[in-house]
Amino acid sequence: MPTHQTNGRSGRASVAARPFQLRGRFITAVGLRLEAESLDEAFYSMLDEQLRSAPQLLLDAPMLLDLSKVPGLTDTQQVRALVDALRARNLQVFGVENATDPQRRMAEELGLIPVLIGRDAPVEKVGADRRRKADKLLPPDNLLMTQPIRSGQVVVAERGDLTVIGSVSSGAELIASGNIHVYGNLRGRAFAGAYGDETARIFCQRQEAELLAIAGIYRTSESLGDDMRDQCLQVFLKDDGLKLEAVT
Protein backbone atom coordinates (compact mmCIF):
# COMPACT_ATOMS: atom_id res chain seq x y z
CA MET A 1 0.00 0.00 0.00
CA PRO A 2 1.52 3.32 -0.99
CA THR A 3 1.82 5.72 1.93
CA HIS A 4 3.06 9.24 2.07
CA GLN A 5 5.55 9.44 4.88
CA THR A 6 5.65 13.14 5.51
CA ASN A 7 7.09 12.75 8.96
CA GLY A 8 9.02 10.24 11.03
CA ARG A 9 6.00 8.66 12.67
CA SER A 10 5.64 5.99 10.02
CA GLY A 11 3.43 3.79 12.16
CA ARG A 12 0.72 6.38 12.13
CA ALA A 13 1.07 7.44 8.50
CA SER A 14 -0.68 4.41 7.07
CA VAL A 15 -3.62 5.01 9.35
CA ALA A 16 -3.85 8.69 8.51
CA ALA A 17 -3.76 7.92 4.78
CA ARG A 18 -7.30 6.52 4.88
CA PRO A 19 -9.29 8.78 2.55
CA PHE A 20 -12.47 9.02 4.60
CA GLN A 21 -13.92 8.54 8.04
CA LEU A 22 -17.45 7.57 8.90
CA ARG A 23 -19.03 9.70 11.57
CA GLY A 24 -22.52 9.56 12.99
CA ARG A 25 -24.44 12.83 12.60
CA PHE A 26 -27.70 14.06 14.00
CA ILE A 27 -29.08 17.14 12.36
CA THR A 28 -32.20 19.06 13.09
CA ALA A 29 -34.54 19.57 10.16
CA VAL A 30 -37.72 21.55 9.77
CA GLY A 31 -40.71 19.53 8.71
CA LEU A 32 -43.22 21.32 6.47
CA ARG A 33 -46.46 19.41 6.66
CA LEU A 34 -48.79 20.14 3.79
CA GLU A 35 -52.34 20.30 5.13
CA ALA A 36 -54.10 20.59 1.77
CA GLU A 37 -53.32 19.42 -1.75
CA SER A 38 -54.01 22.79 -3.32
CA LEU A 39 -50.81 24.83 -3.46
CA ASP A 40 -52.34 28.11 -4.48
CA GLU A 41 -51.67 31.80 -3.92
CA ALA A 42 -53.12 31.64 -0.39
CA PHE A 43 -50.59 28.93 0.53
CA TYR A 44 -47.62 31.03 -0.57
CA SER A 45 -48.88 34.21 1.06
CA MET A 46 -49.31 32.35 4.38
CA LEU A 47 -45.83 30.91 4.02
CA ASP A 48 -44.34 34.36 3.37
CA GLU A 49 -46.13 35.73 6.41
CA GLN A 50 -44.71 32.92 8.56
CA LEU A 51 -41.22 33.65 7.24
CA ARG A 52 -41.59 37.33 8.00
CA SER A 53 -42.69 36.69 11.56
CA ALA A 54 -39.83 34.28 12.30
CA PRO A 55 -37.15 34.79 9.68
CA GLN A 56 -34.27 33.43 11.75
CA LEU A 57 -36.04 30.23 12.62
CA LEU A 58 -36.38 28.94 9.09
CA LEU A 59 -33.47 30.63 7.32
CA ASP A 60 -31.11 28.11 5.69
CA ALA A 61 -32.78 25.31 7.62
CA PRO A 62 -32.74 21.85 6.07
CA MET A 63 -36.36 21.10 5.29
CA LEU A 64 -38.45 18.00 4.82
CA LEU A 65 -41.82 17.94 3.12
CA ASP A 66 -44.23 15.95 5.25
CA LEU A 67 -46.75 14.37 2.92
CA SER A 68 -48.77 12.47 5.53
CA LYS A 69 -51.86 14.64 5.06
CA VAL A 70 -51.71 14.77 1.24
CA PRO A 71 -51.42 11.20 -0.10
CA GLY A 72 -53.10 12.33 -3.33
CA LEU A 73 -50.44 14.89 -4.20
CA THR A 74 -48.63 13.12 -7.03
CA ASP A 75 -48.43 15.88 -9.64
CA THR A 76 -44.70 16.15 -10.28
CA GLN A 77 -44.99 19.61 -11.86
CA GLN A 78 -46.88 21.00 -8.91
CA VAL A 79 -44.36 19.65 -6.39
CA ARG A 80 -41.41 20.84 -8.47
CA ALA A 81 -42.96 24.33 -8.43
CA LEU A 82 -43.33 24.09 -4.66
CA VAL A 83 -39.71 23.01 -4.15
CA ASP A 84 -38.47 25.83 -6.41
CA ALA A 85 -40.61 28.34 -4.54
CA LEU A 86 -39.28 27.15 -1.16
CA ARG A 87 -35.66 27.21 -2.33
CA ALA A 88 -36.23 30.72 -3.68
CA ARG A 89 -37.10 31.61 -0.06
CA ASN A 90 -33.80 30.11 1.20
CA LEU A 91 -35.45 27.00 2.59
CA GLN A 92 -33.19 24.00 1.85
CA VAL A 93 -35.65 21.30 0.89
CA PHE A 94 -33.84 17.97 0.71
CA GLY A 95 -36.40 15.25 1.19
CA VAL A 96 -39.89 14.03 1.78
CA GLU A 97 -41.33 11.95 4.59
CA ASN A 98 -44.47 9.89 5.07
CA ALA A 99 -44.61 9.47 1.29
CA THR A 100 -46.76 6.90 -0.54
CA ASP A 101 -45.11 4.71 -3.17
CA PRO A 102 -46.06 6.97 -6.13
CA GLN A 103 -44.94 9.99 -4.13
CA ARG A 104 -41.62 8.32 -3.40
CA ARG A 105 -41.02 7.75 -7.12
CA MET A 106 -41.96 11.35 -7.77
CA ALA A 107 -39.54 12.52 -5.08
CA GLU A 108 -36.67 10.53 -6.59
CA GLU A 109 -37.44 12.06 -9.93
CA LEU A 110 -37.15 15.52 -8.34
CA GLY A 111 -33.87 14.64 -6.60
CA LEU A 112 -35.46 14.55 -3.13
CA ILE A 113 -34.67 11.86 -0.61
CA PRO A 114 -37.58 9.84 0.75
CA VAL A 115 -36.74 9.80 4.47
CA LEU A 116 -38.07 6.77 6.30
CA ILE A 117 -36.75 7.51 9.77
CA GLY A 118 -37.03 10.47 12.09
CA ARG A 119 -39.55 11.63 14.61
CA ASP A 120 -41.05 14.78 15.98
CA ALA A 121 -38.74 15.97 18.72
CA PRO A 122 -40.77 18.84 20.25
CA VAL A 123 -43.82 16.73 21.01
CA GLU A 124 -41.84 14.27 23.10
CA LYS A 125 -40.04 17.06 24.93
CA VAL A 126 -43.30 18.49 26.20
CA GLY A 127 -44.25 15.08 27.58
CA ALA A 128 -40.93 14.72 29.39
CA ASP A 129 -41.35 18.13 31.01
CA ARG A 130 -44.71 17.16 32.37
CA ARG A 131 -43.31 13.96 33.85
CA ARG A 132 -40.51 15.86 35.58
CA LYS A 133 -43.01 18.21 37.18
CA ALA A 134 -44.93 15.22 38.51
CA ASP A 135 -41.73 13.85 40.05
CA LYS A 136 -41.37 16.96 42.15
CA LEU A 137 -44.65 16.34 43.91
CA LEU A 138 -43.21 13.67 46.21
CA PRO A 139 -45.00 12.59 49.36
CA PRO A 140 -43.47 13.66 52.69
CA ASP A 141 -40.90 11.28 54.07
CA ASN A 142 -40.75 11.50 57.86
CA LEU A 143 -37.78 9.96 59.63
CA LEU A 144 -37.84 8.09 62.94
CA MET A 145 -34.63 7.29 64.83
CA THR A 146 -34.91 4.85 67.72
CA GLN A 147 -31.24 4.88 68.72
CA PRO A 148 -29.40 7.66 70.54
CA ILE A 149 -27.73 10.08 68.12
CA ARG A 150 -24.01 10.11 68.86
CA SER A 151 -21.46 12.87 68.68
CA GLY A 152 -20.40 13.40 65.08
CA GLN A 153 -23.55 11.86 63.59
CA VAL A 154 -25.67 13.90 61.18
CA VAL A 155 -29.27 12.86 60.64
CA VAL A 156 -31.20 14.49 57.81
CA ALA A 157 -34.93 14.31 57.10
CA GLU A 158 -35.03 15.72 53.56
CA ARG A 159 -38.80 15.91 53.25
CA GLY A 160 -40.63 15.98 56.52
CA ASP A 161 -40.30 15.63 60.26
CA LEU A 162 -37.47 14.04 62.22
CA THR A 163 -38.31 12.22 65.43
CA VAL A 164 -35.62 10.88 67.76
CA ILE A 165 -36.47 8.48 70.57
CA GLY A 166 -33.37 8.80 72.74
CA SER A 167 -30.86 11.50 73.41
CA VAL A 168 -28.88 13.60 70.97
CA SER A 169 -25.27 14.02 72.06
CA SER A 170 -23.34 17.23 71.85
CA GLY A 171 -21.54 17.32 68.53
CA ALA A 172 -24.44 15.61 66.74
CA GLU A 173 -26.65 17.39 64.19
CA LEU A 174 -30.32 17.01 63.36
CA ILE A 175 -31.58 18.53 60.13
CA ALA A 176 -35.19 18.40 58.94
CA SER A 177 -37.25 20.23 56.36
CA GLY A 178 -40.12 20.02 58.83
CA ASN A 179 -40.35 19.71 62.61
CA ILE A 180 -37.86 18.04 64.95
CA HIS A 181 -39.00 16.03 67.96
CA VAL A 182 -36.54 14.68 70.53
CA TYR A 183 -37.80 12.34 73.23
CA GLY A 184 -34.67 12.62 75.32
CA ASN A 185 -31.97 15.18 75.99
CA LEU A 186 -31.14 17.46 73.11
CA ARG A 187 -27.47 18.32 73.62
CA GLY A 188 -26.43 18.70 69.99
CA ARG A 189 -27.64 21.00 67.22
CA ALA A 190 -31.07 21.04 65.64
CA PHE A 191 -32.04 22.72 62.35
CA ALA A 192 -35.78 22.60 61.68
CA GLY A 193 -37.35 24.07 58.54
CA ALA A 194 -34.03 23.62 56.82
CA TYR A 195 -35.49 24.62 53.43
CA GLY A 196 -37.05 27.79 54.73
CA ASP A 197 -40.27 26.56 56.35
CA GLU A 198 -40.87 29.25 58.97
CA THR A 199 -43.73 27.34 60.56
CA ALA A 200 -41.44 24.43 61.56
CA ARG A 201 -40.86 23.81 65.27
CA ILE A 202 -38.45 21.98 67.51
CA PHE A 203 -39.74 19.98 70.47
CA CYS A 204 -37.51 18.36 73.07
CA GLN A 205 -37.92 16.69 76.41
CA ARG A 206 -34.86 18.36 77.89
CA GLN A 207 -33.04 21.22 76.27
CA GLU A 208 -29.26 21.41 76.62
CA ALA A 209 -28.68 22.27 72.97
CA GLU A 210 -25.56 23.74 71.42
CA LEU A 211 -27.61 25.41 68.71
CA LEU A 212 -31.26 25.66 67.75
CA ALA A 213 -32.31 26.95 64.33
CA ILE A 214 -35.56 27.33 62.41
CA ALA A 215 -35.51 28.40 58.76
CA GLY A 216 -31.96 29.64 59.18
CA ILE A 217 -32.63 31.81 62.24
CA TYR A 218 -30.55 30.43 65.07
CA ARG A 219 -29.52 30.84 68.68
CA THR A 220 -26.53 29.18 70.29
CA SER A 221 -26.31 27.84 73.83
CA GLU A 222 -24.87 31.15 74.98
CA SER A 223 -27.86 33.13 73.78
CA LEU A 224 -30.48 30.54 74.69
CA GLY A 225 -30.40 31.58 78.33
CA ASP A 226 -30.04 29.51 81.46
CA ASP A 227 -33.68 29.67 82.45
CA MET A 228 -34.70 27.55 79.48
CA ARG A 229 -31.97 25.02 80.06
CA ASP A 230 -32.92 21.48 81.12
CA GLN A 231 -36.56 22.29 80.31
CA CYS A 232 -39.09 20.39 78.27
CA LEU A 233 -39.90 22.94 75.59
CA GLN A 234 -40.87 23.89 72.07
CA VAL A 235 -39.06 26.33 69.82
CA PHE A 236 -40.73 28.34 67.06
CA LEU A 237 -40.39 31.54 65.06
CA LYS A 238 -42.29 34.61 66.15
CA ASP A 239 -41.72 38.16 64.88
CA ASP A 240 -38.57 37.00 63.07
CA GLY A 241 -37.06 35.75 66.30
CA LEU A 242 -36.56 32.34 67.82
CA LYS A 243 -38.91 31.84 70.75
CA LEU A 244 -38.52 29.17 73.40
CA GLU A 245 -41.56 28.16 75.37
CA ALA A 246 -41.87 25.55 78.09
CA VAL A 247 -44.27 22.73 77.35
CA THR A 248 -46.16 21.91 80.50
Binding site: Q147, I149, R150, S151, G152, Q153, S169, G171, A172
Partner: peptide
Amino acid sequence: VRDSDRVLGLLAS
Protein backbone atom coordinates in the same frame (compact mmCIF):
# COMPACT_ATOMS: atom_id res chain seq x y z
CA VAL B 1 -16.91 10.95 77.14
CA ARG B 2 -17.47 12.98 73.99
CA ASP B 3 -14.95 10.87 72.06
CA SER B 4 -16.44 7.65 73.40
CA ASP B 5 -19.83 8.82 72.22
CA ARG B 6 -18.39 9.40 68.75
CA VAL B 7 -16.86 5.92 68.77
CA LEU B 8 -20.20 4.40 69.81
CA GLY B 9 -21.71 6.11 66.76
CA LEU B 10 -19.05 4.53 64.54
CA LEU B 11 -19.64 1.12 66.12
CA ALA B 12 -23.30 1.49 65.18
CA SER B 13 -22.55 2.46 61.58
